[in-house]
Amino acid sequence: MNRNAKALLDTGLTSALADALGPERLRCGVPLAPYTTFRIGGPADLFFEARTPEELARAITVARQLGLPYFLLGLGANILVGDGGFRGLVIRNAARAFRIHPATHRLWAASGAIVYPDVIEAAVAAGLSGLEHYVGIPSTVGGALWQNLHFLSPDRSRTMFIEEVFLEAELLTAEGERRTAGRDYFRFGYDYSVLHERDDIVLSATFQLAPADPARMRAVMAANLAWRRERHPPLETEPSAGSIFKKIEGIGAGRLIDQCGLKGTRIGGAEITHRHANIIVNRGGATAADVRALIALAQEVVERETGYRLEPEIAFVGDFGPPPA
C-alpha cells in the first residue's frame, strides 16, 4: 500500500467508503496502467469496480458525499494517467449488461458495455443496423456518448456520429438526481457532448436501430476495420491513446506533424508512430513523462515551423509528479 492510500485510511474516509461499497470490493494501491490503452499510469489510492448501473450510481454518490476526489474509468482510451497515479478513488465502469428489444428495434446498454465487439456484434446478429460503423474504436457506451463517437466512412463521403442512433440515457446528474435525458440535452458536437461541461454520469443508454441485412452490415464492418488497420497501430502490440491532438479544420494535426518530419521521433519509450503522425505509441516502458515531453516537442516544432498551435485531445488524469513510494 502506498503512503497516499494509507493516509486516506487514517482519515476514516476509506472506512466509510468500504461500508458503503463493501470492504471486499474496495482495493488500495491498484496500478492503473493495465486498465488503459496506453499501458501507462501509476497506482490509484483507492479502486472500485462497478458491475451494474446501480453500483456505479452508488459509488459516485458516496464519493461525492464524502468529498473524495474520484475518476470514472471506462476502457482507458483517450487518456494519459500520470506516473504518480491518482489521488483518490478510481471507479472502473464494468457495468457490461445490454439487451435487445426486437419489437421496437431498440438496444439498451449499461454505460460500461463495450461498443465493439460486444454491443455491435449483438446488434448485427439481431439484424439491427446503426452501430456497425463504429467497429474497432475502443469505447464503452458511456464513453461513446461523452465524445459523440464518430467514424469517417472509408469512401470519405461523410462522418457518422453515435448521436444519429442515440435515443435516451439514464443519468446521475451533477446535482445527484436520477433522470432520463434525450438527444437535445446532450448538445452533441464534433468530439463533444454536454458531459464535457457537466459532472453528469451516464448509467445506461438506449439506441434506436433499424432492420437491415446482416451481410451488408458485416461488409461495412470489414471495410471500416480494414481502413483502421491501414492507418492506426494495433493496440495489442503498439499501445496508444488514439489521436493525441485535436482536429484542425481543413489541415489536420497529423498532417502538420508529418510535414515537420516528426514521424518516428522518440523520447524514452514513447514514439510518434510512422503509421499516423497524430498517434504516440508506447514502444515498451514508456512513462507519462515521456509522452508529455514528446507532446511538448511536437507542439514546439509545429508552432515554430507552421504557426499552428496543437491542442491536446486526450485527457491528462492524476499525478504527473514522481511516483509515490
Score class of each variant (00 low, 15 high):
318 G>T: 06
244 I>L: 01
253 A>K: 01
29 G>S: 14
218 R>E: 12
140 T>K: 03
87 R>E: 14
145 L>R: 09
40 I>E: 11
74 G>H: 08
185 Y>N: 00
202 V>E: 02
53 P>D: 00
160 M>A: 00
319 D>E: 13
149 L>Q: 08
276 H>Y: 08
292 R>P: 03
134 Y>D: 04
128 L>D: 13
141 V>G: 03
27 R>H: 09
189 G>D: 15
92 R>E: 02
46 L>G: 01
179 R>H: 00
142 G>L: 10
5 A>N: 05
299 Q>H: 13
253 A>N: 06
90 V>E: 03
311 E>K: 11
236 E>N: 11
217 M>V: 04
19 D>M: 05
3 R>V: 11
313 E>S: 06
112 G>L: 04
61 T>A: 13
250 G>W: 15
120 I>F: 02
172 L>V: 06
54 E>M: 03
114 I>C: 09
35 Y>C: 14
7 A>T: 11
83 D>L: 02
227 W>A: 12
90 V>G: 01
212 A>K: 13
266 R>N: 03
42 G>Y: 14
98 F>Q: 01
298 A>G: 05
251 I>N: 11
221 M>E: 06
277 A>W: 13
294 L>F: 08
302 V>G: 01
41 G>F: 09
129 S>P: 07
20 A>V: 12
277 A>L: 11
156 R>F: 15
308 Y>V: 00
22 G>K: 14
260 C>P: 02
50 A>F: 04
49 E>W: 01
147 Q>H: 13
120 I>P: 01
251 I>T: 15
9 L>Q: 10
5 A>Y: 01
261 G>Q: 15
271 E>V: 13
40 I>L: 12
99 R>C: 05
33 A>L: 14
83 D>W: 07
47 F>N: 03
108 W>I: 04
269 G>Q: 07
143 G>M: 08
323 P>R: 15
